[in-house]
Design a protein around this nucleic acid. Sequence first.
DNA 1: GCACTTCATGTTTTT
DNA 2: CATGAAGTGC
Length: 838
Amino acid sequence: MSPIDDTDAFEAAARMPLSARAMAARPTSYLDDLNPAQRQAVEALDGPVLMLAGAGTGKTKALTTRIAHLLNTGRARPNEILAVTFTNKAAREMKTRIGTLMGQTVEGMPWLGTFHSICAKLLRRHAELVELKSNFTILDTDDQVRLLKQTIVAANIDEKRWPARQLAGIIDHWKNRAWTPDAVPVAESAAFDGQGVALYAAYQDRLKTLNAVDFGDLLLHVVTIFQTHDDMLDQYRRWFRYILVDEYQDTNVAQYLWLRLLAGGHKNICCVGDDDQSIYGWRGAEVGNILRFEADFPGATVIRLEQNYRSTPHILAAASGVIAANKGRLGKTLWTEAEEGEKVRLIGHWDGEEEARWIGEEAEAMQGGTRGLRPYSLDDMAILVRASHQMRAFEDRFLTIRLPYRVIGGPRFYERMEIRDAMAYFRLAVSPEDDLAFERIVNTPKRGLGDKAQQKIQQMARANGVPLVEGARLLIETGGLGGKGAGELRKLIEGLSSWNWLVRNRGSQPAIKSLEAEILGLESLDFSNLENEKREKAEQERAAQITVLELHLAILNGDHISLAELILDESGYTEHWQNDKTPEAPGRLENLKELVKALEGFENLQGFLEHVSLIMDNETEEAGAKKISIMTLHAAKGLEFPVVFLPGWEDGLFPSQRSMDESGLKGVEEERRLAYVGITRAEEVCTISFAANRWVYGQWQSAMPSRFIDELPEAHVEVLTPPGLYGGGYGAAAPTATGIEDRAARADVYNSPGWKRLQSRSAQRPMSQPRESRNMVIDAQAVVAYQQGSRVFHTKFGYGAVVGIEGDKLEIAFDKAGVKKVVAGFVVPAEQAGEVPF
DNA sequence: GCACTTCATGTTTTT
DNA sequence: CATGAAGTGC
């Protein structure tokens, strides 16, 4: 269908009889909420469309409305629309918003999801075409690395010189480009000591044997299937009548091929993206994909969303000024109707510590309104850093002054040790042939099964061509294992087989009947002939047995939550953490509870496992206390905050040296896009800062203000005066580790355009008094509050006693973690943390 | 199998 | 510096 037919359809609707039009008119009222560009993007339903949506221009709105419109105009049924995103979060948001638009929850949009989840679904349907079974396991990075390690060792390569992690990176890179082992270009053959390709092939074989795939395979296998099975591809081309892609600038080659294959027939593909926000080049994203769209799909409609609903004109102008330095952009001009607002604020500091201190104070002051600004809640503020190690300075500072903060993007829930262990048990209960899971938990908790015992199991399994669990069973039966390990292993195997039995017989009437009979049998036992003491014991035993059987019965009737609890209990895993005395143990138990709770949302254990491997959700948004957010620029993409702090704008840190070294101009351009993303996160107040000196890796390092600062258009920037400019502020002697002044570095700082501008501008305005530092007072109090012998609590190290005081640092002998030096702000009095004093 | 040491390493991260 | 991984000795 061409766009002409589309218009005709609307004219036809206009000519409809009134009654019919009334029906059609109501559901399209959502169109009235759109600006002209958005409306065009929604109404250009047929043929290829590229929606270039700048930051904050209502792209999700356009995308979701477009889907609603496709459904409303009857062009496609919900299950005929393929809508892909990169993250589960984005997919979820789209689902809810479509639901809101349609005035109901959208049932049956089965093909709205992440690239990976959609591919997993497709691959489960057609697994046999790539020699897999449809119940294949999806390995995460950890499993992947362990498997690669085995592959490397098997190939007699020194794992120390050639680490598995590195190989994982190389293979990932190849998979991102959709290269199967036989398709890796010759130019790459030197990779990994010339063994890369061979190891890649061996790894793929190993995966096949294990009936497993890694994340890259999900896409790669599906692309392979489409490329080699025309009939299959045709079927899906016809099925997915409309395709929508979010964040198109982030697609890698494999994803691009996948989309091209699927859209190849009708070409009803709508890609939404912003070339200026492409910040994932380092993990395979190709900005080229979006730049090439019109060449790939001749006659494509290109629509630019340029009206920004997020930021003030000054902020937009600053962002535009920076990004303008990039070459080869598709080009957009963001504009807004918002009031002028505050200029982007720029401030230089003497060192990183002062920068953190200043931001802390500023955040605190802004809660009450300062510098003529309205008051802001801490929830409205975010600090966006280039690299996660920069967060430390802020955490240190905020702990000291007790400023509540939250760090976004820490270790992921499903990546935590205890969660992965528990998941391995679940995986084994569902599929006993999952060797990787078995390896993970044979000796967790400790069962006295060390290296040699595990090797024996491996040998036995390999000799008989059976999975490890079966190998272990054979080993026990043949008495090939002695000592304490044998009994423990037997217990584990028995546990595994009983859990597996429960999984297999879920809902099985014969199994349920026989369990019921067994319970009845136990209940009818007559102990009256026994003497008192023995009878009591027998009755207790019976009661315990019945409890267990009833639990089994509940599980057979579908209670998979009890199954999970049973597994964690019987395996001794829960107990393992209960006995653990490290300060982390309670948290881990808490996480396990959380995991079990997460099961509630699923039909059964299998369903849970299938989905969990694709969901790396980190959304444990505790409501309540107001907190300032700290996160990386990458993590901030897609978010917005009234107040944004962008610290660390120094050459070498941002743009990062490594990025410039490795990717040269391309690297700088990606960093610049990162700067653009950072600035455009701000709605009202954006504060950029840099420090002349930073304590990095045990050394003082001086740096020039970031080149991006020079790119900020002056008219939209206000320079704030650093605190204490006269007393050792910016421009004072650079501290060095040796105490010798680094004159060269200082000269550079003075000559940088950023510094010159900063200096000339701050000369024009009256110097603000260095603020009286409230924090110093708090610091002093914190130190004074403790003395030798004070009992304290530290969130990471647990309880301890103060054995020494040095300035604002305390030397503490922790009960579990030994003696450490800690900034006073890190600890609280032990009583306050709930320790009962003697 | 565990506690201690040395040693390298030191962006961005989703699925 | 500071952290984690891997190696050493008991």
